[in-house]
Design a protein around this nucleic acid. Structure first.
Lengths: 212, 212
DNA sequence: CATTTAACTAGACAATCAGTCTAATATTTC
DNA sequence: GAAATATTAGACTGATTGTCTAGTTAAATG
């Protein structure tokens, strides 16, 4: 039985190749991310996003079933975006592990500064809004935090193996401690329009790490 | 010149004495606090608050000039409420200073647990929402955090004087560190519907305090 | 009782929300 | 060209938003 022969190719228009730069769906996601990191989910109307990109409403509901589905797509995209950022820094074997963590923190701080501290962290924003959000968001947000924590913890393990922190350090706990507090720092940085909360938190966090 | 004589008493109906328990204004504030700590400012409609209290819409704008004015009143009330809670614990001379801080943390955690971790901190909620809020909120929120931090720092000073923490500890910095991270912990506790983030953060915070 | 002032209410208002729907057009394969 | 699908276009709905005005009721004084 032939299987590598195109038995009955579908007629009609095939799905087009997605282009990262011009794809309408991608444009909507990008604009959505900008607005949601600034104002959150509930305070943002779909029309505002549409207006920015210059796309009519019909297109939105072609690409997304609902505002909820749009939010879920944003969470996933942002989670991956940040995971890549983490990997880029924490996997940089040119630096000792602790310095990699510092590099990540600096990068994240610079990212906030670049937008004049108007944009925060999408995951943190939505987490705080959970009371008014579709319940489907909860697990995704939790999973995202857990994922980031795991990457952070892995780097702490390397630091432990390199003798930079104490041999009996609980890296999972320390990573959780970091992310819990870091999200608070992002919140405050947005409120105060300043990098100080980020630097203060990161400074005392690193100082608090148990030394060998 | 007589001043204790009621020279020209105003005619007409006098402003009534506000009664803490039945006052409509107070009821609106109380209900508003419940909803806003749960869902935030933008996601909450005035109608929802009105519905809870059983007060018609027209009355709202008799007591408050706008939703914004309502929000400002809530911030002030919540700031004072929490300041009292802080004073009650941190001023308790029956306990050594560090234990007072622990007592406050436990109280705050129990408060969240009592509402099944659905309600967060009003100030933290609004801080995160700042991007979509009237700019008049920003200073009030900042001031509230500063106020809480000052009270926390004062207790740390007592701890330092009692030799519970290092003599050269920077109490202002430590208090800032605590509140930055604590708000993050409240956020996570709400997301995870669990006391764990609160306990984990508080645990490592206290462990990180520089010992004499 | 009449007047004055305050407390409170009823509902209209325009604006905006998320979401739906129908029709038209663009793009590709057969 | 015909067929099939992808995408666009935007009017429309019904619900909800914050705000406001005009009115009624309550309590005091002269």
């Amino acid at each position: 039985m032939h299987t590598d022969q195109p038995v009955a190719r579908r007629r009609g228009r095939p799905p087009r190749q997605r282009n990262e730069l011009t794809d309408t769906r991608e444009l909507l996601l990008r604009a959505g991310l900008e607005v949601l990191t600034e104002k959150g989910f509930s305070a943002t109307g779909i029309d505002e996003i549409l207006g920015r990109v210059g796309v009519p409403k019909g297109s939105f509901y072609h690409y997304f079933n609902s505002k909820e589905a749009f939010g879920l797509a944003l969470i996933e995209g942002y989670g991956r975006f940040f995971a890549r950022k983490l990997d880029r820094h924490l996997g940089n074997r040119a630096l000792p592990p602790l310095l990699r963590l510092h590099a990540f923190v600096d990068d994240a701080r610079d990212g906030m500064a670049r937008h004049a501290f108007r944009r925060g962290c999408l995951i943190g924003n939505l987490g705080q809004e959970m009371g008014a959000l579709p319940e489907s968001f909860r697990d995704r947000l939790r999973d995202t935090f857990e994922d980031w924590q795991a990457r952070f913890s892995a780097c702490l393990v390397e630091a432990r193996e390199a003798g930079e922190i104490a041999a009996d350090a609980d890296t999972d706990q320390l990573a959780a401690f970091f992310w819990i507090g870091w999200e608070g720092a992002v919140l405050r940085a947005k409120l105060e329009k300043s990098a100080k909360p980020l630097e203060l938190f990161a400074g005392l966090f690193f100082a608090s790490l148990p030394r060998g």
